[in-house]
Computed example of a mutant assay.
Amino acid sequence: MIKIDAMMVCLDLSDIDEKLVAFARSICDRMEIRKVYFVHNIKVYELSDDFKEWFGDVDLASEIEGNIQDIVAEHFEGGCEHEILVSEEPNTEVILADLVKRYKIKLTVLGKKMSDKSTGALGTKLLRILPCSVLVFPETARFNIQKVLVPIDFSDTSEHALRLSKNLSDQLRLQLEIMHVYRLPRQFFPLISQEKAVKKAEEVVKSKFAELQKRHQEMSSVPYTLVRAANKSIAERIILHLEKGNHDLLVLGLKGNNPLPTLSLGSVPTELYNTDIHVPLWLVYSEDAIQ
């Protein structure tokens, strides 16, 4: 069973906050979450001189905390234990990373607006700096999760994400599908035919799936899909399959202390984050506890 002692929900005082709080409530309903921290950081240096002159005597942190309390009272009623944290620091990424370490956060929930409303620059920075798993909730996503897609590259990291996905699917009775996107090494063409190369590549990948199922027999019944990247990026192939299969959640593994993976996954999480997908994206950090 997946247990999360501490979860952090990042709020920005925009319309998406209500959806994030309600989504956090739905997570608490379906998973074992001990405590949730609703957090917001005020970048004081971004306040205009006019604002400071007009409202200089206002306790801005208290006002914002009251606003968040109202949202939590409306959309988190009956949820698990929670606390509201409002800080005033010049660097939001640094203070959030500090909160993750201070409160031993295992999962951070981030909202994501569509690209025509936001650049997503802060979210990209947080993916690089937060030492915990990150669950990205797009403003167009729905709460009702029934189908999970987990792309893997057969690394230890992706297997960790797969085990978590299987655990989650068993716990919540969800449909789970494994996916692998492969590329053909172009340097061998035209020495060998493309048809032979595809056949050989699929044989190799299928043997890796067989080895994976031997190591983790609980995966033997999980369907998997093998997709050739061809003229598209790995992230583009994942998105196409995500839409075609009507999945509700995408899970990817992250590596090391710097969550953005290297090697075969490359910049896949970054590209997926910067694309307007309409399902939650769970980027799984390797220290998540699966019990």
Score class of each variant (00 low, 15 high):
L130C: 08
S267P: 00
V72P: 05
I152M: 06
K3A: 04
E177V: 14
K214L: 11
E32F: 01
G123Q: 11
S220Q: 15
K232I: 00
S115G: 07
V94D: 14
R228A: 14
P151V: 03
H75C: 06
Q146E: 15
S26Q: 14
F209L: 11
L242R: 09
E218V: 12
E93G: 05
L168M: 15
A289V: 15
K106F: 00
V284K: 03
P261Y: 02
E139K: 05
A161F: 03
I95D: 04
M114C: 03
S221G: 07
L252P: 03
Y285M: 03
G123A: 11
D98F: 07
D15W: 01
K112C: 07
R215H: 13
K106G: 15
R102W: 00
L272V: 13
Q291T: 11
Y273C: 02
I178Y: 05
L252V: 10
I290F: 08
V222N: 06
L168V: 13
K43D: 13
C10D: 00
G56A: 08
L126Q: 07
G56V: 08
L130P: 05
L174F: 08
E74G: 00
L135K: 05
L85Q: 07
P90G: 08
Q146C: 07
F143Q: 10
P280L: 08
L176W: 10
S26R: 14
Q187M: 01
Y182A: 04
G66F: 06
E203T: 11
K3V: 09
G78C: 01
P151C: 05
L176V: 09
L240W: 02
P259V: 02
I2E: 04
G79V: 09
N144Y: 13
V227Q: 09
I234P: 03
